[in-house]
């Protein structure tokens, strides 16, 4: 990031761009200020149905029940990003870290704490801010810390077992969502009696998949291919 800054664009063009973008910013600001001063949005509907959603935290209810389909596709986006990164075959992207004593002992200390925090966030999501994404990213951070400390996945687990863990979120969503169609329901329509349990199942597998995907994205290449080459 040395001298590759703004040198390629002449000053006159930059000024013109600034003027154009200022006009755009004024338009955007005007649009925001013209919005109705108060609006409940969908909060009324969200609260009305909270008792049959299986959880008491409305954000979790939206993510894993009302709009669970979005969450399903979004787990697909995460998996897809990993497929994309692996398909690049990024040879020069591996991190060659030699952890010092500080990183080494800190990771020993932090990783168990992160796992615990992640478990708490997962559980708390049902009634308070938290849930699969928060838990998954904390767990993913533990994975990144392990990678930085020089840990690598066991060669025997790098193939199919790792791949199964990565697709777990998408696969369980697709499977359970589809099974719920059979008794005459709709895709991802949870019977209220089982909604709480199903949401916990989804959140657990999503947490694992998200954490492992984030760690794998940080690693940058398919560990199985790394060994082969």
């Amino acid at each position: 990031m040395n001298n590759t800054g703004e040198n390629t664009i002449p000053l006159s063009l930059r000024l013109l761009l600034m003027v154009l973008l200022t006009v755009m910013a004024v338009g955007l600001a005007y649009a925001v200020l013209s919005l109705p001063a108060q609006a409940p949005g969908l909060s009324v509907y969200a609260v009305e149905n909270i008792n049959i959603s299986g959880v008491s935290n409305p954000v979790t209810a939206v993510l894993l029940n009302y709009r669970a389909y979005d969450t399903f596709l979004e787990l697909g986006v995460l998996l897809l990003a990993l497929l994309g990164v692996w398909s690049l075959g990024c040879a020069g992207c591996q991190h060659q870290s030699s952890p010092g004593p500080v990183l080494d002992s800190l990771s020993r200390l932090l990783v168990p704490i992160l796992i615990m925090v992640s478990g708490y966030l997962l559980w708390a999501g049902a009634h308070a801010p938290g849930g699969a994404f928060q838990a998954g990213s904390v767990l993913g951070a533990a994975g990144v810390l392990l990678l930085l400390a020089g840990w690598r996945i066991h060669a025997g687990l790098a193939g199919l077992p790792l791949r199964i863990a990565l697709v777990l979120g998408v696969a369980v969503f697709a499977l359970v969502g589809a099974v719920l169609i059979l008794p005459g329901g709709q895709l991802l329509a949870f019977p209220p009696a089982y909604a709480g349990g199903l949401i916990l199942l989804f959140e657990t597998v999503a947490t694992l998949s998200i954490a492992i995907s984030l760690t794998a994205l940080f690693l940058g290449a398919d560990p199985d291919e790394e060994d082969a080459s």
Binding site: G41, S43, D70, L78, L82, C93, G220
Partner: peptide, 30 residues
């Protein structure tokens, strides 16, 4: 209480942004 629907949309959006950023960074290195 705040409307939960946009909050959920933002969480979805963040995961999408993280995924896209990861792909972009890997592509940049290549």
């Amino acid at each position: 209480a705040p409307d939960p629907v946009p909050h959920a949309m933002v969480i979805t959006g963040i995961v999408v942004a993280v995924s896209a950023t990861a792909l972009a960074l890997a592509l940049m290195l290549r």
